[in-house]
Design a binder for these strands. Structure first.
Lengths: 223, 223
DNA sequence: CCCGCGCTGACAGGAGCCTGACAGCACACG
DNA sequence: CGTGTGCTGTCAGGCTCCTGTCAGCGCGGG
């Protein structure tokens, strides 16, 4: 899961990185409104954490422009002054949730997770597809009611496939979501991850459509 | 995805080719405004990357003429002097996005992808014609509610025919869309693909108008 | 009846994908 | 601070299946 954190205070940014990273999310940062707008408009994030007090371009404006362009990703707004009017403005501009400073990191992580879950169209913390179950709280994976040990990378890959279960996902898109674009990887790296995951999960879970990409084929099998 | 890159600086052109090519796009080049105008007016591209400083015919003029002729493909404008007025002029002339030089190639690729994605947003996930159904999410094909296994090439051919279902499509046009013009194929290659597809789909789907091209004849049959 | 466009089966070359091995690296532990 | 363990990207090899080419044939049109 890719998260964009827009925060100009380096101390808070560091905390954000630590907390969200520990929650199994891949965090990218930017510190001003201009680049925030650009990144959110061109990249695919699963969540944006947006501070309102920003240099160069106000956070609310950034958010409004994203929505005007049809960008639908969930946005969690942070603000120093948690006044009621600002909250209304944030929701009005298209924010999905709101957190006044100061806040406890645990709370932010919990809300972030809830937003990602909700945007996936499910209220539950468990993603399911046939005999496959993935708990986003425990970060655990079960196949046919038997636990499967996965690495962080394998886990992120599975989550993304589960969130796009009715779709064939191109390798380039998977690479985009597994790695930052600063750290480019070859397609073969992805193939290796898939191979290792397949060995752990057994057959009939991750399918390949030659020339197109990977997909989840556990949709219709019995438990 | 076909991309036209209009750029007279050979160094930048080479970089463009490498970056966009690595992003899985098929890139074609031209270096002056005249041929750019001609190509953009007669060929079907999914994206145009347009440098404004061009010999023979200014980039902005080219863009305006395209739009005046009803050409709707997304255009990403590059310019050496990233002044505010030029940006306004570009948007005004019908550009979909704007990138001032110098820029990082990753940025360009990101914007290019975003533009293609956005323009692909119009259109439903399932294409239908009579008993034929093609799901662009699952990349799957159904005939009379029975799944049909297709290769990547066959799939792309079917998509193109479905998008032009009320028309006889000349072989040259199909070749253009299936392959890049750098990698030329004979007409017989296309005939072979059609033959293989016909065997999988059964009769009454792909028709031939001798001397003109192929067309979809599944328009009016029962399920 | 003849010409030529389009169809088709066979086949070889190659692209796409998988897999096992290995090395670099981070991290935890002593 | 040294060591070990597990994760992960890279590489090379191999396999499957796709796909362009070729040659021969059918068939429609003149």
């Amino acid at each position: 899961m890719r998260v964009l954190a827009v925060e100009d205070d380096p101390r808070i940014a560091a905390d954000l990185g630590a907390a969200l990273g520990a929650a199994g999310l891949r965090v990218e940062f930017c510190t001003d409104g201009d680049t925030a707008w650009f990144l959110g408009d061109t990249e695919d994030y699963d969540l944006v954490v947006l501070d309102l007090g920003l240099p160069r371009l106000d956070g609310l404006t950034v958010l409004k422009r994203w929505r005007a362009n049809g960008r639908e990703m969930p946005v969690l707004v942070l603000t120093a002054r948690g006044t009621w009017t600002e909250r209304v403005e944030g929701i009005d501009a298209g924010a999905d949730d709101y957190l006044p400073k100061p806040f406890r990191m645990e709370e932010l992580v919990a809300r972030a997770r809830a937003l990602i879950r909700r945007s996936a169209g499910r209220g539950s913390a468990v993603l399911r597809a046939g005999s496959l179950a993935l708990d986003t709280n425990q970060m655990s994976v079960m196949r046919q009611n038997r636990p499967v040990q996965t690495t962080a990378l394998e886990y992120r890959l599975l989550v993304y496939l589960l969130l796009n279960r009715d779709r064939v996902v191109p390798p380039t898109e998977l690479l985009d979501h597994l790695y930052g674009d600063n750290e480019l990887r070859e397609v073969n790296a992805l193939e290796a991850v898939v191979a290792r995951l397949r060995r752990k999960l057994g057959p009939g879970v991750i399918g390949t459509r030659r020339g197109f990409g990977y997909f989840l084929e556990a949709a219709g099998d019995a438990l």
